[in-house]
Amino acid sequence: MYAQMVKSTGTGLKSADEMSAEERAFQARIDAGEKIEPKDWMPEGYRKTLIRQIGQHAHSEIVGQLPEGNWITRAPTLERKAILLAKVQDEAGHGLYLYCAAETLGVSRDEMTEMLLDGRMKYSSIFNYPTLTWADMGAVGWLVDGAAIMNQVPLQRTSFGPYSRAMIRVCKEESFHQRQGFDIMMKMAQGTPQQKAMAQDALNRFWYPALMMFGPSDKDSVHSAQSMAWKIKMNTNDELRQKFVDQTVPQAEYLGLTVPDENLTWNEEKGGYDFSEPDWEEFFEVIKGNGPCNTDRLAARNKAWDDGAWVREGMMAHAEKKRARKMAAE
């Protein structure tokens, strides 16, 4: 998942006594595992939080095309180029169904796009890191898509019907993305010394940013309780991060690569790894817009949108002319 620090609008979790009758009935439906559909009554906070979360996820798919697009023209083989193109095409498709899911909540895709472009809405911090070598295409698939899947699989059971259905479609494709990333890493880890060095360097640069994808530690995650009660969020940030580390460390070992964390140790008692926290100060800076690529990413999206204005206007004008001609002929 590509949503981090999504603000919920409530003033905190309400007890059943504090809820209105409608809110109680709504919560009861969620607790019973029912899906909420767009025409159903829902608290304003639920609607707004979902718009933020789904919108942020959609924007991440769109901005996420850029770091990978950076390597499509330099892909080392025809097959790798085709796979990467297919992956980026899938991501744009994910963006499309997520925007559609958000639109059922009463916000248009254009409105959400404007909010992305002027910085009112966010996208995942991970896409503000540069892709510097071909190994980064491996690391992005393996770690970034791996972390995303960790979050998206449980979201298939989320309470909002259109979001849940979008996630089911997204998850089917994401596992292919992760496999192709791991496959790139494997080829490089078993390749020449230069290739292996590139693979290690990519892991070094993407490890902590990947851990940040799950959002801040639970103790600092102020919006989680309400979102979890609403089943917009299914697990806590720390639970998912732990699961990700436990899954990924053996994969790194298999590749013969070293996770860049001196404190990484297996903890028999908890049945998982102990590991170092990412630099949260860096995370908050990236979220604020001060990451390595924030300026360039937003500038690229703004340029695409501005340069494309005449195309969108031209197409609209043509559709309007066609409609008028059809009316005149009838």
């Binding site: 769109i62 095309q65 850029l66 990978e68 697009g69 499509i72 023209t73 025809l78 097959e79 180029k81 085709a82 193109l85 297919a86 980026v88 095409q89 744009a92 498709g93 963006g95 499309l96 925007y99 895709r109 690229a300 340029k303 695409a304 949108w305 340069d307 494309g308 204005a309 195309v311 969108r312």
Partner: peptide
């Protein structure tokens, strides 16, 4: 494929990637 992520509208990003993908497949 140079267009990736820079098209005027999302549907065009998808269509351009799809066209490039077909062409690379034919190349193979």
């Amino acid at each position: 494929s140079e267009w990736c992520g820079h098209a005027p509208v999302l549907e065009e990003d998808i269509a351009l990637a799809n066209t490039a993908l077909d062409l690379i497949g034919q190349t193979q």
